[in-house]
Design a protein around this nucleic acid. Structure first.
Lengths: 133, 133
DNA sequence: ATACGACTTAAACCATGGTTTAAGTCAACA
DNA sequence: TGTTGACTTAAACCATGGTTTAAGTCGTAT
């Protein structure tokens, strides 16, 4: 099985190494192995967990909550129901946030339409001037 | 024309008064009138601008950029093109963010499915035990 | 007249999520 | 053997986006 260095892991997920170290310090990446010199070795499992952390972060789950989730993963199968409930709740929150963004985006679209019209009208006016010359 | 007090404005948009004061201090709410006692009076125009600020905030535009936008609004019609460009660019960023959230949400859905299956399987096992009694 | 509630300000405080720095260790290559 | 590059740590630092506090001013109802 392949192991990844921190620079490889950082490259693979396109995030800074410092962020990975920060996540580990916050308890989001438990069980990371080390080589004889103390350097991190990311197993496939560690990479998978990091990927999950990044998905949760992308959907704006706070770090403390991600930590709770990771703790449950480490605890094992008897926490499956807790994790399921958390993921379902999180999904709801994400859908609500997307919905809010889409509503707001609709208002922004109206602004774009109004500004576009205004600029068109301005162009017409200038054409008029030109033709009158 | 109706004027709104800060408490009315806060209630109308369901945000704390302190946030409105903070936005004003950051330059996001220029031209707010005051009564003889120095209290803020929000005109319809001010309320509309506040609404726009909230939409931009909902779509994660940073305060400094919202301030640039508001400055252009105050400057008048000759900034229409600048505002249009900004809104178009912002729309792109918002769509990208929504897209990232949706991709991540899909992974979360996979987790939900796996946890649901695991719990179903666990139930089956327990039923088996019961029937064997 | 006074007391209450709504408002004002400036400044301090806070949480979140990292990023940067400084000092050091180690492996490998010239 | 020494120097270079990749790594390590703890701690300091930073930006963002507010929230809270303290002290004071008004308008109004009793």
């Amino acid at each position: 099985m392949k192991y990844y260095s921190i620079s490889e892991a950082a490259a693979k997920f396109d995030i800074p190494e410092s962020t990975i170290r920060y996540y580990e310090k916050k308890g989001l990446l438990p069980l990371i192995e080390r080589d004889a010199a103390g350097r991190r070795l990311f197993s496939e499992d560690s990479m998978t967990l990091l990927k999950v952390v990044i998905y949760l972060k992308n959907t704006h789950m706070p770090i403390k909550k991600i930590k709770q989730y990771v703790d449950w993963v480490v605890e094992g199968d008897h926490t499956t129901q807790l994790r399921l409930d958390m993921m379902k709740e999180h999904k709801k929150a994400v859908l609500a946030e997307i919905s809010l963004m889409e509503t707001s985006l609709h208002e922004i679209d109206l602004k774009i339409a109004r500004y576009t019209n205004r600029i068109q009208a301005e162009k017409q006016k200038n054409n008029g001037k030109e033709e009158a010359r």
